[in-house]
Design a protein around this nucleic acid. Sequence first.
DNA 1: ATCCGGAACATTTTT
DNA 2: TGTTCCGGAT
Length: 824
Amino acid sequence: MTLILDPDDPAGWREAAAPASSGPSGSHLTDGLNPQQREAVEYRGPALLIVAGAGSGKTRVLTHRIAHLIETREAWPSQILAITFTNKAAAEMRERVQHLLGDGASGMWISTFHSACVRILRREAESLGMSSTFTIYDSADTRTMLKRIIKELDADTMGFTPAGAQAKISKLKNELADADAYARNANLNDPQEAVFCEIFRQYSRRLRDQHALDFDDLIAETVYLFRAFPKVAALYQRRFRHILVDEYQDTNHAQYALIRELTRPVEKAVVDELDAHGILVRGLTDEHGEIPGASLTVVGDSDQSIYAFRGADIRNISEFERDFPGAKVVLLEQNYRSTQNILSAANAVIQNNFDRKDKKLWTADGDGEKIVGYTGYTAHDEAQFIADEIETLHRAGVAYRDIAVFYRTNAQTRALEEIFVRSALPYRVVGGTKFYERAEIKDAMAYLTAVANPLDELALRRILNTPKRGIGPATETAIAQFAEQNEISFRQAMRSAAELGLGPKVRGAIAGLADVLDQAAAMLVPSQRGLDEGTNEGAAKVSDVLVYLLEASGLIAALRNSRDPQDETRAENVEELVAQTRDFDRENPGATLVDFLTQVSLVAAADELDDASGTVSLMTLHTAKGLEYHAVFLTGLEEGLLPHQMSATEPGGPAEERRLFYVGITRARKRLYLSLAMSRAQFGEVSVAMPSRYLQEIPEHLVDWKQSPGMATSRGGTQPRALNARRPGGGPGGAWGTRDRDLERFSVTRSAATKTEWANKVTANVRDNGDLTLDAGDRIRHSDFGEGTVNQVTGEGSKRIAHVAFDRVGAKKLLIKIAPIEKL
DNA sequence: ATCCGGAACATTTTT
DNA sequence: TGTTCCGGAT
């Protein structure tokens, strides 16, 4: 997080030049690469496009290219800017480069677009007339804000929703259009559009007034900064000589513009000015006295473009050669990850997307195992199949951490988690930022935000009556009005609580809160020496400030003293947040509160990368991009889920969904499992599902269906795994051959009659066995699996696990505390 | 101002 | 199913 090298500090610049450890040739960095990979590492020129199919070793190429630039002494680490899409990818790349270079890697910027932009914006905030402690609003904050605006404008009567306005504004910002630009081109005679202009304008104005930026602003404002202040831009153009962008197919227009700005040459006049300010330009200029544009390397694969929904423009990659004349293109086609069966399936699926350059992944490593398919009766049945297969894999020696389960929507984790918990299967949900989205955590964070950025009205309003202080909406409005009338901030209005003409109790509450915030702000002021040296020395640690705020505001006490049993958990969560700030303080000595808030805003999903933990990973298909696992489970392969219902209306939607499926398939190294459920609960309603159209695009001989959709719908399937649904009929049925007819009958005649039988019995059975003790040799009965014998009991306390050999369904592990079992 | 119950509503994917 | 919003009672 800390900026190690100043772009405008020549001393730091020189210091960064740690000499390469092993020989300047860097030849060991190209050993073991195929000719195309080697070329991608060694090529030098203004622009390089690496078209990298899935599993073709692109991260390897990228990291080796960076290391090669440094070892051959063509670049200092500080001259390198590598952009990835996720924090996870950035962390992995940093680790791998560090592994190649040792300490010589420090000073590089390896980060996401958003993190890099925040770093630049905080440093240059002054140019934009903004505080360097500006707040970053996440989508929930944005939505709250828009909700308020829409209500004030009565725009909801015209059919505006916060989510809708949010999407539209985001799209516009990704195209670098601001409220004024939009208004200029809008047809203001259309009342609908006029109102939207007003919403957009108000939203922008409030963000500016509060010194806050949303996610899209981070990119757009940086582009604006560079365009409006060429000298500021020159600092970064001078500094970053090599820019590398991963997942280039997913860049949107704003990100493209940012790259364009960063790779622009610095004109002689500006160079001279930099020189006059003592900024090192020697050795960087060409014969015209200009600093030439940075060299740009982009890596991408248009078949893996899955972010069109947030403005990714595939033309950025397809027209790269036109954008950057003289660009070199290197194709990486050989796959080093997956078996041929997996690749054949992937090729067959992606082939159905027209309008793409034909490209076929291939491997020299052989066919491998067949793909395994399974159709469950319900999501729980599907989950049980997955849990069973994972146990089988595990017993065969596959580590849990080498196994991943993917799904389309976050909501699908529920059934999986329920079954995994019951099966005592160690798992971890990657992404899904739940922790920081909890209300109590957002409350605590709002206290910190309000201290860091006193102009942040959103944060202030959130904590105004949290915990309850008797300050209701009426008082809130009164403060806001007072602020507006006197042209002072909401925060200042709070300080003048006495002048509001309120009752003594309310007045005291407001003054009390204002005082607490002032005290906390005072704790954060560095010592005189810190101020002189521009460091954070003498400022209180983030954890100390947080503890002070929680105690002085009464937030933690309110949770602890509450009689709502849920508040106990909430208090624990807040304590967990305190623990996290302690970790942060320890790992980032000298870091500020704003550093912490930034990290939480941008890196929240990064509880990540403790890959040492032996757990199965659960994540969405989007999160899965760029990762690989020995065994991969693709779940919920149903119409309406993949492709998702919502994608049907969007142009290019189904094609993008297919790419998503393709991305999922190509994550697997050795084993691939495809599964779906015939019925799925949604909003509490059980509805019938059809197999995904993409399943039929995989050649039949590649898949071994343990239970095909046909078998599941008509007859011949095995007993449902998770529950005892009684299905009529018997005898073996066809797999795909009779699929359509079977499905039709299934959906028409069976759905109504069998709905109740498929209801979620699993969750209904969850209970607390408390102190049930089991020993090896005991006989038990399980509500789904029948009778069995306990072989072994492991674990402690509430985590005791029974290893049971069931008479009918074989070996299972059960979490004793919650398993629906009884001792016989 | 706060608490409570019932109705309404909601889920794509991410920084 | 689980959360949020609204109106009425206290």
